[in-house]
């Protein structure tokens, strides 16, 4: 969308644009500038650049989000064990402090960069850009971005990924999608992790977790996994491999994709 020719003015936002054009006078010496841009447009601009960077190299980028301790790194370790012979995998790790997660990934023989956010509760596109430039992407097919463990803030920042995955572990509570709708609405797939613990977590009902997700008008698949000791991550691997194939086809036809849930209201109300 451009701001010069007025093509971002739609029936939905016309009432916001008072006066003639974007520079309408309100009183002497004061001028009102109508903007209608996303509040995070600088982040979104960087995110688009990151996505182009991945696309030029034919890489699928996946953003993993969840609360702390729901098993993101364990899922990545199991995924690397299962797929690293067939796919080049690299990982960007986000935490407030420590290099621990990147070290766990490197121990599997996979390239990993740790972003220590300090006090920041989420990754943003600029942090990911810096991390990408520290990663050798030669021969890489999939980049996983493991976001800061947090069910709130990471959902609001586009990083340049193609797909969002939200993990919900059975030790957390099956109503999490209802409690954190912004996060779970953004998920292209919901991984139900630690299902090997279901026998002792008898108050967690997987069907209820899925119902809470559907209440958010989400059609995302629910993928049950038990990642530790490689017990069962087949549903996740099938989804992931299908995404790799679909992304290759997409790139071959000159297209890319952003995570399924984009701010529809923003699009409808004029922001690019």
């Amino acid at each position: 969308m451009c701001d010069t020719c007025g093509c971002n003015i739609t029936d939905g936002n016309r009432h916001l644009v008072t006066g003639n054009g974007k520079f309408s006078r309100v009183d002497s010496g004061t001028s009102a500038v109508s903007v209608l841009k996303g509040l995070l447009s600088e982040n979104d601009h960087q995110a688009a650049h990151n996505r182009e960077h991945f696309d030029r190299r034919g890489i699928l980028a996946i953003n993993l989000m969840s609360s702390p301790g729901s098993g993101k790194t364990a899922l990545l370790e199991a995924t690397i064990d299962a797929l690293s012979k067939r796919y080049g995998i690299a990982v960007i790790e986000g935490d407030l402090e420590t290099e621990n997660d990147a070290e766990r990934i490197r121990a599997k023989g996979v390239r990993a960069v740790q972003i220590a956010t300090g006090t920041a509760c989420h990754l943003d596109a600029h942090m990911v850009h810096d991390a990408v430039h520290q990663l050798d992407l030669d021969g890489i097919n999939i980049v996983f971005i493991e976001n800061v463990g947090n069910l709130v803030c990471p959902a609001s920042f586009d990083l340049g990924q193609h797909r969002n995955v939200a993990l919900l572990s059975v030790t957390e509570g099956d109503d999490k999608p209802a409690k954190y709708p912004v996060m779970f609405r953004a998920a292209d797939a919901m991984v139900l992790s630690k299902i090997d613990l279901l026998p002792v977590m008898d108050d967690f009902d997987p069907a209820r977790a899925e119902r809470c997700l559907r209440d958010l008008a989400s059609r995302a698949p629910v993928l049950p996994v038990a990642a530790r000791k490689q017990m069962d991550i087949d549903a996740w691997l099938s989804w992931l491999e299908q995404e790799v194939v679909t992304h290759r086809e997409r790139l071959a036809s000159g297209q890319t994709i952003r995570p399924a849930i984009q701010p529809d209201g923003m699009r409808l109300h004029g922001a690019g």
Binding site: T30, A32, L36, G38, A217, S218, H269
Partner: peptide, 29 residues
């Protein structure tokens, strides 16, 4: 926010048409 079902028929095949905006609308200088 956590129940985005159709208010008329109750179906979950809905699309959000308002509610996730994060827009800078205007600035007075």
């Amino acid at each position: 926010v956590n129940r985005l079902l159709c208010g008329s028929c109750g179906d979950y095949h809905t699309r959000l048409i308002s509610g996730d905006e994060l827009l800078l609308a205007s600035v007075e200088l």
